[in-house]
Amino acid sequence: NITNLCPFDEVFNATRFASVYAWNRKRISNCVADYSVLYNLAPFFTFKCYGVSPTKLNDLCFTNVYADSFVIRGDEVRQIAPGQTGNIADYNYKLPDDFTGCVIAWNSNKLDSKVSGNYNYLYRLFRKSNLKPFERDISTEIYQAGNKPCNGVAGFNCYFPLRSYSFRPTYGVGHQPYRVVVLSFELLHAPATVCGPKKST
C-alpha cells in the first residue's frame, strides 16, 4: 500500500533546468501520483496529453512515469509533440509517434532571462542524422558540413554543433524561455507502482 506522493514538485520547481540537447530525465515510481497538483503548480502555457485524457490521469496506474525536463524558446514548444519536425524535434528531443503522456510548458522569462542575455541554455544546431525517439546526444564533436574532414577544428564548413540561446527579458514571447516537462507513461507487463490517489488504497 503506497502512500508517499510522487515528487513532481522537485521536477517542476527545480531551480535550474537542463539545456534541451542534454535534457534531464527523472524516473518516478512507487508513489501516489496526484496530477491535479500539477494544474495548480504554475499558470501553464501548455498542458497537452496524448493517448490519455488529462482529467482521467488520477484514475490510472502505470509501471513507471518518466519526467523529462529542459528549456526551449516559446515558438519551439509546438515541436514537443508526436510527429513534429524542426531543429528541436530533429536534433535535441524527439517524441515517438505513439507517445503516451503529457507535455507541460510554461513561460520562464522571469527566471531564465537576463538583461545582458542568459547564454547558459544550449541547443544542438547541427547533426548528421535525426534523433530516434527519446535519444539523447550530448556530443560536442565538430560538425563537418563540407567534404573536407574537420579534424576537430572549427572553421570553414566545420561547425561547433551547439548554439546558445541568449534569453533577454525584452524579447518577444516566441523568443522567451519556456520550461518544459514531458511526462511519459510506461505500461509494462509488470506491477503498477505509480497510481492516482483513488487507485492507491
Rank of each mutant, 00 (worst) to 15 (best):
A105M: 06
I104Q: 01
P169A: 05
D59N: 13
N30I: 05
I104D: 00
S184G: 13
T85L: 07
F156E: 05
T170W: 06
K26S: 09
N120M: 11
Y39D: 11
A14V: 08
L60A: 11
N30A: 09
N87H: 15
E186C: 07
A42E: 11
G83S: 09
N58F: 08
P43K: 13
F134H: 10
D137Y: 04
S36T: 14
K26H: 09
F70Q: 00
T100G: 06
L188A: 15
L122I: 10
G152W: 05
V20A: 07
I2A: 14
Q79T: 05
F167V: 00
A33K: 07
I138T: 15
D137M: 03
Y39P: 12
P43W: 09
F8N: 05
D98H: 11
I28P: 02
K110T: 10
K56T: 11
T63L: 09
E141Q: 12
R127G: 05
P149V: 08
F156P: 11
G152T: 07
P161C: 03
F99E: 00
V32C: 12
Y39H: 13
Y91I: 06
K56S: 12
P7I: 09
N107F: 01
Q84H: 10
Y91Q: 04
S139H: 08
V11F: 08
F185K: 06
K148I: 13
P197C: 15
A105E: 01
N92C: 03
S164G: 06
N1F: 10
Y50S: 03
A105G: 06
P96I: 03
I2P: 13
A145I: 05
R127N: 03
D98A: 10
D90L: 09
L60S: 10
R78W: 07
P169H: 05
V182K: 01
A190R: 13
L60N: 10
Y171M: 05
G172R: 02
G74P: 01
P161D: 02
D59P: 08
R78A: 13
G101Y: 03
V180R: 02
K94F: 03
L38R: 05
G74I: 01
P149Q: 10
Y91N: 08
I142R: 02
T170P: 02
L183E: 00
T193A: 12
V180W: 01
V181E: 00
L131H: 03
N64E: 14
N13F: 11
R78I: 08
Q79A: 05
L125Q: 11
Y93I: 02
K94H: 09
T100V: 14
G146T: 03
T140V: 10
G86I: 01
A192M: 14
C6V: 06
D112V: 03
F134V: 05
N147F: 06
